[in-house]
């Protein structure tokens, strides 16, 4: 299957939630999906006979200047094919439904995206920080993050 066929299949099943297919040079081809339709899209991709994307390889957050992006890399063990999904979120209050119940590996990936960027995943069973200490303030991987001066009395910068 090539990206165009997958996009057509999704357009037929989901309809408006799937926005467009982007195939640029030096980019892996990706499909942009709205935040409301992401869970249904993932369920279709996982269960449909022609696609069978049963392996979530990677879920990462990205900070562009004016928006947040959540990127999903999927892989199908049977058909040996890969696809990329992207969800665009606004910067002030980023919310997106969780895909934890579709693939269990999304659990820890989403916790990390929350820890590093502050993207809130609605419906997650245990959304708290995973890599930074539990009482850390701020979201470290944002482009406008400033290193704190002191943490519990220990001086942080050099």
């Amino acid at each position: 299957m090539n990206p165009k066929e997958i996009f057509d299949l999704l357009k037929k099943e989901i309809g408006d939630g799937v926005l467009e297919l982007v195939e640029k040079e030096h980019h892996d081809p990706f499909i942009i999906v709205t935040p409301e339709a992401i869970v249904e899209t993932c369920l279709v991709l996982r269960d449909d006979e022609k696609t069978l994307f049963d392996y979530l390889v990677n879920l990462s957050g990205v900070d562009e200047k004016d928006k947040f992006i959540v990127v999903y890399h999927l892989f199908s063990l049977k058909h040996r094919y890969r696809i990329v999904l992207k969800v665009y979120l606004e910067r002030e209050n980023p919310h997106v439904p969780t895909v934890e119940r579709v693939w269990r590996s999304a659990n820890w990936h989403e916790r990390e995206a929350y820890d590093m960027f502050g993207i809130v995943f609605d419906g997650h069973s245990d959304l708290r920080r995973i890599l930074s200490p539990y009482d850390w303030e701020g979201y470290p991987l944002r482009k406008d993050y400033k290193m704190p001066e002191y943490y519990k009395g220990i001086k942080v910068p050099l």
Binding site: S132, P140, Y145, M147, P148, I154, K155, V156, P157, L158
Partner: peptide
Amino acid sequence: YWKQGYHVLKGVDRI
């Protein structure tokens, strides 16, 4: 990790 390490203790002799 001395430059941008926001979570790294710069030397254990601080504690």
